[in-house]
Design a protein around this nucleic acid. Structure first.
Ligand SMILES: [Mn+2]
Ligand SMILES: [Mn+2]
Ligand SMILES: [Zn+2]
Ligand SMILES: [Zn+2]
Lengths: 122, 122
DNA sequence: TTTACTCTGCAACTTAGTCGCATTTAATAC
DNA sequence: GTATTAAATGCGACTAAGTTGCAGAGTAAA
């Protein structure tokens, strides 16, 4: 999946800002928030969030609210769950978990709790 | 489980504000946010959140961040998951879902997606 | 290269939740 | 009961992630 094609397939314009943003998200091995991305992009905060919204509308990415009041973003590739540590706020991908709810449409599963190192430390 | 005993078992003072707050949370059949509670309590917003933090420290309640950027609170009784609709922001309890992660400690499972009525409407 | 429309940067704004501080209240001791 | 002390409260000011309005820049198609 090439980034440029990903954008052209959708109803949005191909800009350098968008390509850069999608490249960063594609290279990431976990969901990222604005704070983690801002130093690697030149676009303004408002533009960042407007582009994120566009990507959500176009069904390119998934987002969820973490425990630290920040929103985390990840490209919609293979569906999987996420773990968020309520102590150190680390975000991890969790494959191999499957949940089904009849008549519901599931976008994301977030598991809140303590990660192994925070469990051990407490 | 009587509210007064619940407080006395813990290392916090028994105040009318706390009793009222716990009664509301106990009577609720789903997690509630400050906005949904504020009209039924007389305590200040700061006091509300400070009490919620105390309850969390004392392991009386669970909290999670919803899609609407509000934090939802529920007494820690029988463990179960929660569904949050990304469209109408409705919060529901979901029993009968069980997830285990070795070496992790799970507090809460939040399923994000569209509820049946929002699925139908779209 | 013109035109129409989208995207962008900037600055001002919104809002759930937090913090500092002076006052009140609950719990314990006398 | 009254005194003592530490915790709880109300108020107003503050924080910070994210949003919005607007004017100018860039993209796509003709
Ligand atoms: Mn992931
Ligand atoms: Mn519940
Ligand atoms: Zn952790
Ligand atoms: Zn819904």
């Amino acid at each position: 999946m090439k980034i440029e094609e990903l954008i052209r397939d959708k109803n949005i314009k191909l800009t350098t800002a968008r390509v850069k943003l999608l490249e960063i998200l594609k290279a990431a091995d976990k969901p990222l928030c604005y704070e983690e991305i801002k130093n690697d992009i030149s676009m303004d905060k408002a533009t960042f969030y407007r582009n994120i919204s566009k990507f959500e509308e176009e069904d390119i990415l998934n987002a969820f609210e973490s425990n630290d009041k920040k929103r985390y973003f990840e490209l919609k590739l293979t569906p999987h769950a996420h773990f968020v540590c309520v102590q150190c706020n680390k975000v991890e991908c969790v494959k191999n978990i499957d949940i089904a709810l009849v008549n519901y449409e599931i976008n994301n599963i977030i598991i809140n709790g303590k990660c192994p190192s925070c469990v051990e430390a407490s």
